[in-house]
C-alpha cells in the first residue's frame, strides 16, 4: 500500500502526493484523521450539551413540544424554591462525611504504606466497595439498614437496647446520616489508594531516617508523612466541597430521594426526567457548574501557594504537569 503510493508519486509527481509524502504533509494528515472522530464525539456529547444547557436555562420547556422564553426566571426559582434550597442544606451531611472519609483514608493509607502483614488483603478489602455497581450498592444498603436486619443485629449484639434503634432510612432526623455513612463506605478506599500513591512517591530515606531517630507512628505521621503529602490532602479537602454539593449516588440508589434525602443532583434528575422541567434543571446544572468552577479556582490558587513554598526546585513544565494531573484526578472524583 505504502509502496504503491510512493511509486505513484514518483511517476506522476502530483503535488498532492509529494506534499502528503513529505513529513509536514504526513503530520497534517495524521493530525486530521486521528483527531476527527474523538473531536466529533467530544463536540456532540460534551460541547453541544453544554451550549444547549446554557440556552435551555432561559426557557420554560419540556424535552418535546413548544418553548417559551422566560429570561432569568429559572435562575430565580433555583434560589427561591424551598425544595432546592433544602436540598443544598443536605450537602453539609456529605461534607461532614467527606471529612471523616479523608481522615480514615489518611489513617489507613499511612498504616498500609509500610510493611504490614496481610497488607494487600486489608487494602483490597477497604477498596473493593468502590468497585461494587451502584444499583447493587443501593440494595446492599437497603438490606443493611432495614429495621431488625444487619445494622440492628450488630448494634444489639454489642449491647444497644433494641427499643431505641431508629428507622435508619425513614426517620428524617437520621436518614441523611445513614446515607452519608454509606458514602464513606464506598469512597474511603478510593481516597486511601490515592493517598498511598502519594506516600509511596515520597523519598523512602525520609521514613528510614525518622525510624532511626526513634520516631513512633504518631511522630512519623505528623512530621514526615503529613508534611510531604499535605498538598494532595488540602486539595482533596477543598474538592470535597463541590463533591458534597454534587453528592448523587447514595440517595439515588438507596432511598431514591424520598423522605427528605433528595440532594441537589437527585432533585435535578427528578426535575429534568420526571417533571420534564428541562429549563429549570438546566439552570440548576449551570448554577452548580458555577460553584464547581469557583471551588476549582480556589483549589488552583491554594495549589500555587503551596507550590511556591515547597517545590521551588521543580521546573515549570513539571509543575504544570502535576497541576494538571491533580486536576484530572480531582474531576474524576467530582463526577460521582
Amino acid at each position: 500500500m505504502k509502496k504503491a503510493n510512493r511509486t505513484d508519486g514518483r511517476q506522476n509527481a502530483l503535488p498532492f502526493w509529494q506534499w502528503a509524502r513529505g513529513l509536514r504533509g504526513q503530520q497534517m494528515l495524521v493530525t486530521i484523521t486521528f483527531l476527527l472522530v474523538p473531536l466529533l464525539l467530544f463536540f456532540i456529547f460534551t460541547c453541544l450539551p453544554f451550549l444547549k444547557m446554557v440556552q435551555f436555562s432561559f426557557f420554560d420547556m419540556r424535552y418535546i413540544g413548544s418553548r417559551t422564553f422566560v429570561g432569568l426566571d429559572n435562575y430565580k426559582s433555583v434560589f427561591t424554591r424551598s425544595d432546592i434550597l433544602s436540598s443544598l442544606k443536605l450537602a453539609l451531611y456529605y461534607l461532614g462525611a467527606s471529612v471523616i472519609q479523608l481522615g480514615l483514608a489518611l489513617l489507613f493509607a499511612s498504616v498500609l504504606s509500610f510493611k504490614t502483614r496481610l497488607g494487600s488483603f486489608f487494602k483490597g478489602t477497604l477498596f473493593f466497595p468502590y468497585l461494587v455497581c451502584g444499583i447493587a450498592m443501593g440494595f446492599i444498603f437497603k438490606f443493611f439498614f432495614t429495621h431488625g436486619f444487619v445494622l440492628d443485629t450488630v448494634l444489639t449484639a454489642i449491647g444497644v437496647p433494641h427499643g431505641i434503634l431508629p428507622m435508619w432510612l425513614l426517620n428524617t432526623n437520621i436518614n441523611n446520616f445513614s446515607l452519608a455513612g454509606s458514602s464513606i463506605w464506598r469512597y474511603t478506599g478510593q481516597n486511601m489508594v490515592l493517598f498511598i500513591g502519594a506516600i509511596m512517591s515520597v523519598d523512602p530515606n525520609l521514613y528510614e531516617a525518622a525510624e532511626i531517630d526513634g520516631a513512633n507512628g504518631v511522630n512519623k505521621f505528623f512530621h514526615v508523612i503529613l508534611p510531604s503529602i499535605k498538598t494532595i490532602v488540602v486539595l482533596n479537602i477543598i474538592l470535597s466541597v463541590s463533591g458534597s454539593i454534587s453528592a448523587f449516588e447514595p440517595p439515588y440508589v438507596i432511598t431514591g430521594g424520598s423522605f427528605g434525602t433528595a440532594t441537589y443532583f437527585v432533585l435535578m434528575d427528578q426535575i429534568a426526567h420526571l417533571d420534564q422541567k428541562v429549563g429549570l434543571a438546566s439552570a440548576m446544572a449551570i448554577v452548580l457548574l458555577g460553584i464547581i468552577i469557583v471551588v476549582t479556582v480556589i483549589q488552583r490558587l491554594v495549589f500555587r501557594l503551596f507550590l511556591d513554598e515547597d517545590e521551588k526546585g521543580m521546573t515549570f513544565r513539571e509543575r504544570r504537569r502535576s497541576t494538571r494531573r491533580i486536576a484530572v484526578t480531582a474531576s474524576s472524583k467530582g463526577g460521582k
Binding site: 467530544f42 456532540i44 456529547f45 460534551t46 460541547c47 453541544l48 450539551p49 453544554f50 444547549k52 444547557m53 435551555f56 424535552y63 418535546i64 454534587s246 448523587f248 443532583f265 435535578m268 434528575d269 429534568a272 426526567h273 428541562v278 434543571a281 438546566s282 440548576m284 446544572a285 452548580l288 457548574l289 464547581i292 468552577i293 476549582t296 494538571r324 486536576a327 484530572v328 474531576s331 474524576s332 467530582g334 463526577g335
Partner: peptide, 22 residues
C-alpha cells in the same frame, strides 16, 4: 478544553445529552 470539560459532572450533562440523544 478536555480538562475543563472534565469538571462538569456527568449527571448534570445528561439533562441536555438526553435531548441530543432523542
Amino acid at each position: 478544553l478536555f480538562l475543563v470539560s472534565s469538571l462538569i459532572p456527568g449527571v448534570a450533562m445528561q439533562v441536555t445529552v438526553y435531548q441530543i440523544m432523542y
